[in-house]
């Protein structure tokens, strides 16, 4: 069930749109911030709040890559793999982080600490290669500095 706080946040989001459905993405992201991901149960609760069918909401939830329909780790590392980062060697950074934490793109480490995901250009092309962990952007990342960066996220 939606908590009182969650319900209040959703009611706030809905105010910005002429119909409740307009707030579908805000609602998914709001609940995800609280619960980490969007489970089937969460999806149903949000759909009921928005007065749309759960299938309709799922068609939205599964379209957007920042809505997680599977559990993620305590931290999510988004690895930019677009062209400016590719020129500057993002593939080698990716190989290093996969090796260090024994995890593939799209997976979570066995201790539940870190989920690794690819991401479209983060707009940090002047300091490529770039990555984002949770909400923090890191630029000029190299295979040698990646461990030091990730170690801050326990």
């Amino acid at each position: 069930m939606l908590s009182d706080t969650e319900r209040r946040e959703l009611e706030e989001a809905v105010k910005h749109y002429p119909d409740k459905r307009g707030a579908a993405i805000d609602a998914l992201l709001t609940i995800q911030r609280r619960r980490g991901w969007i489970s089937d149960d969460s999806l149903l609760e949000i759909a009921q709040f928005l007065e749309i069918t759960v299938e309709e909401l799922d068609s939205v939830a599964t379209f957007y890559n920042l809505v997680f329909r599977k559990p993620v780790g305590r931290h999510v590392a988004f690895m930019c793999d677009s062209i400016s980062c590719w020129i500057k060697g993002c593939e080698r950074v990716q190989e290093q982080i996969k090796k260090l934490y024994d995890v593939e793109l799209g997976q979570t480490t066995s201790d539940g600490r870190l989920t690794l995901l690819p991401i479209a250009c983060l707009g940090q092309c002047g300091r490529a290669p770039a990555m984002m962990i949770d909400q923090d952007v890191h630029g000029d990342v190299t295979p040698d500095t990646i461990e030091q960066i990730v170690e801050k996220y326990k």
Binding site: S82, I83, S84, A120, C121, G123, Q124, C125, G126
Partner: peptide, 11 residues
């Protein structure tokens, strides 16, 4: 929705 690779002007 600045997501064009190589583009960071709006940010």
């Amino acid at each position: 929705d600045e997501m064009e690779p190589g583009t960071f002007k709006d940010r």
